[in-house]
Design a protein around this nucleic acid. Structure first.
Lengths: 113, 113
DNA sequence: TGCTTAGTTAACTGATTGGTAAACTAAGGC
DNA sequence: GCCTTAGTTTACCAATCAGTTAACTAAGCA
């Protein structure tokens, strides 16, 4: 994994298990065991996924007795949104061209009928 | 790398070289050699990066004589934007709480002075 | 003190990654 | 036919990843 924050974030998101964990955390803080429940992988594997998410800054872990509740952190997601936003004008341009093409087709169609 | 499209896209984006390639392609189609120019890695390494981007659907490669011009494809980026958008309400809620807190501080400040 | 619950750390494994150098393909031009 | 340019494929390497089992820590409770 690269050391720059955005690469760490993308790498963390490049795994369905980790994205599912984030989706669960969107509903609120949870214990590690509860997070692990839907997946049929071992608890140490979940701990590892949480480490990856933590290093990317996507979650933080607190302490309550023997529980280490996980919490979703929004900042890196916002950074991803900002990054991808740069490309919005690109795909919107593409849609514009498609639309122009469809209008052109329609115009031609109008002439023919 | 996972096989699901979103994971493949995130994995492809989790590398600064590949993100730089995409940024360059935003300006228009380019040959592989020109894409490789800013990086001090070998051409085969660039070919590999392009393969990763291609498998994620982020670029397509055409043919013109001995050149294989690369073109940015918007769809997977749009998928990333859609995915991260789910979390917008989350970080906006966070900002709302921050704002509420700042207003509270301000109110207290008003009482004290 | 000893047991249970919650979770992490350590050591290992097989698969994947990002890079290399060397060999190959494929099109153009002389 | 042969050289050059553009790029890919192959074979290899070291590092990292995602998972495992087994051992450990740390808090609560009887």
């Amino acid at each position: 994994m690269q050391s720059d924050p955005l690469s760490a974030t993308f790498a963390a998101l490049a795994d369905p298990t980790r994205r599912a964990i984030l989706a669960r955390l969107c509903l609120g803080e949870t214990s590690v065991t509860e997070l692990a429940e839907p997946f049929d992988i071992s608890l140490p594997a979940v701990t590892k996924h949480l480490k990856v998410l933590q290093r990317a800054g996507l979650i933080t872990q607190g302490r309550q007795a023997q529980w280490r509740p996980c919490k979703l952190e929004a900042k890196p997601l916002q950074d991803v949104a900002d990054w991808v936003e740069q490309y919005r004008r690109f795909w919107e341009a593409r849609l514009d061209r498609l639309e122009a093409y469809l209008l052109e087709l329609q115009a031609k169609d109008g002439k023919e009928t």
